[in-house]
């Protein structure tokens, strides 16, 4: 996977900060991962492998091994973390199966002098660092974008994710917050698309006949292409549909853009956030002052970066970006 243009995300910058490289050259970092069964996690592990193997050969760190538990279970991951303590790693980068059930093991790692950096699936144990995703902001950003495009407002259709999951609640809360601030918009319908194109298509097709004209569709990712198909099948004009960085969504967008200059934006979390966590762990080992709570930037694709993103995204995959040491530095500074 080729590296995406960094300008695609909020933080730019290409020059590596003058970090003290030699200080961590003897340190060993491990990735403790609880699940590898979908394209996002596969891309996450691939990014880790790519960035860390270069860091190891450059002598930035001595080792950066990835460990995935055989089953997605908290007790198994707790045992895995305890094993990593024994194996003498200096830092553990963690995508946790549970925000709380690993607390005991994480505390034990901290007590053994190990730096624990959790990302994506973060842990509540206070001694660990957290690189969290501000899903609420993501939902709000969608409405802000739509408001810029359509200052006069209109009707919105909201496609939600999997009911009862924390991420779904957060993104939806952000969308509703955004709508509250932009009174010219009104959510006239809301369906659950379960982050899957086929489910979203069926759900949207089901609700469409009862809806007035839709100006824009706000989504959660993995549902934009299905929504577009549903509008097409119903013979209704295609509204502005926010995309979620999946390859099929980007391909459809490109097609529409070429045909009729269709404009939208696409936003989601890059699986390469594992590499951001790696650099943050490296910075902590380097003795840098790092706040315990960091926020990971989204990967946003706009009209002008679409072609490039589509080129680098594998069919059936998710647009990705790998973070550099300088990016991590920016995120850390941004939180201070």
């Amino acid at each position: 996977m080729k590296k995406l243009v960094i300008a695609a995300i909020a933080l730019g910058g290409t020059v590596a900060a003058g970090a003290a490289v030699a200080d961590t050259s003897a340190k060993k970092i491990a990735l403790s991962n609880n699940y590898a069964g979908n394209s996002w996690r596969q891309a996450m592990l691939e990014s880790w492998q790519k960035v860390t193997s270069k860091a190891v050969s450059d002598g930035v760190v001595a080792a950066a091994d990835a460990f995935t538990t055989a089953e997605n279970q908290a007790t198994e991951q707790a045992a895995q973390i305890q094993n990593l303590i024994l194996q003498g790693y200096d830092a553990i980068v963690l995508n946790a199966a549970s925000p709380t059930a690993l607390n005991g093991a994480v505390k034990e790692a901290c007590d053994a002098g190990i730096t624990v950096v959790s990302f994506d699936g973060v842990v509540k144990e206070p001694c660990a660092w957290r690189i969290a995703v501000d899903f609420k902001q993501m939902g709000k950003d969608e409405v802000t974008y739509v408001a810029q495009k359509m200052p006069n407002g209109g009707n919105l259709l909201e496609i939600r994710g999997l009911a009862g999951v924390f991420v779904d609640d957060e993104i939806s809360a952000g969308i509703h917050e955004g709508v509250a601030e932009n009174a010219q918009f009104k959510i006239v319908g809301s369906v659950h698309g379960d982050w899957a194109q086929d489910v979203a298509q069926k759900a949207v097709a089901g609700i469409l006949p009862s809806l007035p004209e839709i100006a824009a569709v706000v989504t959660q990712g993995g549902d934009g292409y299905g929504a577009a198909q549903a509008f097409k099948a119903a013979g209704r004009p295609t509204p502005l549909i926010i995309m979620g960085n999946r390859q099929d969504e980007l391909a459809w967008w490109q097609e529409q853009k070429d045909a009729n200059g269709y404009e939208t934006m696409s936003v989601s979390i890059a699986p390469g956030v594992s590499t951001l966590a790696f650099w943050v762990a490296q910075a902590i080992l380097d003795g840098k002052e790092v706040p315990k709570d960091l926020v990971v930037p989204f990967l946003r694709i706009d009209q002008d970066t679409l072609a490039e993103s589509l080129k680098t995204t594998p069919v059936g995959g998710v647009a990705n970006v790998e973070y550099s040491q300088a990016d991590a530095q920016k995120v850390i500074e941004g939180a201070q």
Binding site: A74, T75, A78, S98, T100, A101, L102, K107
Partner: peptide, 17 residues
């Protein structure tokens, strides 16, 4: 014993058992 070790619980914590 399990919750004494993990210090905190999760509805799915021990399904593997």
């Amino acid at each position: 014993a399990l919750v004494g070790l993990t210090t905190s619980a999760d509805a799915n914590i021990a399904l593997r058992y």
